[in-house]
């Protein structure tokens, strides 16, 4: 259906309301990206694009990234704009729901972590901690389409 997408990571099967997440992000993309003046650094794509991640590591890196957004990013993205806050809440709660499903896969050992995904996630955390927390969170939120494009 146009609404939901089922992503298959080997035995791990996760249903995600991609259209709702995309619609929410598209509505605030210009606003959020305008708050990120740093053109020279990317949290998710530096130094290598997510597209370079080995396919066997996709589930683990996805699991790490959803934990990253839920635990670290969204809570530092409060704005003065109620409409933007509503859309961020919508995305954050969708991510929370998906994070739980990925967590279940992880517990059933269906989402194994290889060396590459561990290294890639360390790099992402290093990029994140290289900036002050609000700038890093806003930049990460502005890069949500990079994550969604890669996942699909």
């Amino acid at each position: 259906t146009a609404g939901n997408k089922i992503l298959h990571f080997g035995a791990c099967r996760v249903s995600m309301s991609m259209t709702e997440i995309r619609a929410g992000f598209t509505a605030i993309k210009a606003n959020i990206q305008a708050r990120d003046p740093i053109r020279t650094l990317s949290i998710l794509s530096y130094p290598h694009s997510l597209h370079k991640v080995n396919s066997s590591d996709r589930c683990c890196i996805t699991h790490h990234l959803f934990n990253f957004y839920v635990d670290k990013v969204f809570k530092h993205c409060k704005t003065e704009d109620s409409y933007v806050n509503r859309k961020i809440s919508s995305i954050a709660n969708s991510f929370l729901s998906i994070k739980r499903k990925l967590g279940q896969c992880h517990e059933k050992n269906q989402c194994m972590c290889g060396q590459e995904s561990t290294e890639k996630f360390k790099q992402i955390l290093a990029n994140y901690e290289g900036l002050n927390v609000t700038s890093a969170a806003m930049k990460s939120l502005g890069e949500l389409d990079i994550l969604l494009d890669w996942m699909e």
Partner: peptide, 8 residues
């Protein structure tokens, strides 16, 4: 409806 946009 628009704000209840996740299954939580």
């Amino acid at each position: 409806t628009e704000d209840i946009s996740a299954t939580v």
